[in-house]
């Protein structure tokens, strides 16, 4: 949640948000731990951890195969896989761990409840799409796509890129941010009038937490799906 004072610090002339840095580091460690502990003792006959990991890889590959032709997936598989685990764990992190400094500034929360994070990932996806388009079609064919079906269309094409960037990033931000905000509001309600409100609010909080966990998974899925759609659009020449 971002409704308290924001703890920031300056480094090399850039402004950093402490909460984002710490949360991202936590997610980073969690992802590394996840893939490390599930990828030990790989065997032809998979055991529990390997089963899970292979299921996850199949799952994200399945998302990508939905829009990108199978022979062109290549490195996007790794991108989609990493993106999915990172976003999923980011979405879920804030639901279970929400720490604040004594002055009220949050220090650990969902990294994705900050638009800077989500727009960074959104931008990264669109840059990757541009890169993929250029590397597959060449500059001429790639940028020629913006002039189709007729030259004036370039206005709409560029505008579309911009809206893609915003909607991709802000969709996940909105869901996660509102989820965490509502959790905070329900908690304030719980502690506002003692035991009576606590009894009402705690089941509500649990229900909303469960729903948010579900939404977090859906949003990670949607983000990867839309990423693959945007990338696939750049891989083909428009008629």
């Amino acid at each position: 949640m971002n409704d308290g004072p924001v703890s920031t610090f300056q480094f090399l002339g850039l402004t950093f948000s402490t909460a984002n840095i710490v949360s991202a580091s936590v997610v980073f460690v969690l992802v590394v731990a996840l893939v490390y502990f599930t990828s030990r003792h790989l065997a032809m006959k998979p055991t529990s951890g390997q089963n899970f990991l292979e299921w996850l890889i199949d799952f994200t590959n399945g998302i990508l195969k939905g829009s990108i032709p199978a022979k062109e997936i290549g490195g996007f598989g790794l991108y989609g896989f990493t993106l999915f685990i990172f976003l999923f764990l980011s979405n879920e992190l804030g639901l279970f761990i929400n720490l604040a400094l004594p002055n009220g500034a949050t220090i650990v929360r969902s990294p994705t409840s900050d638009p800077v994070t989500t727009l960074t990932f959104s931008l990264m996806t669109l840059m990757l799409a541009q890169f993929a388009g250029v590397s597959k079609l060449g500059y001429k064919a790639h940028f020629g796509n913006y002039l189709k079906p007729f030259k004036v269309w370039i206005v709409i094409s560029i505008f579309e890129e911009f809206t893609n960037f915003l909607t991709l990033g802000l969709r996940i931000f909105g869901v996660i941010f509102s989820g965490e905000m509502l959790l905070g509001i329900i908690w304030k309600l719980a502690v506002s009038h003692g035991i009576a409100t606590m009894i009402v609010a705690v089941p509500l909080e649990m229900a909303w937490q469960g729903f948010s966990a579900f939404l977090g998974a859906i949003q990670a899925f949607v983000f990867v799906t839309l990423s693959s759609v945007y990338i696939s659009q750049k891989l083909e020449i428009e008629e």
């Binding site: 480094f11 850039l14 402004t15 950093f16 948000s17 984002n20 990294p111 990264m124």
Partner: peptide, 21 residues
């Protein structure tokens, strides 16, 4: 005071994570 630094941090973090994964 928009914290653009975070974007760079996230990109670096993500690329590193991709490599580790």
């Amino acid at each position: 005071g928009l914290y653009f630094g975070d974007s760079i941090f996230y990109v670096v973090c993500f690329l590193l994570l991709m490599w580790i994964v």
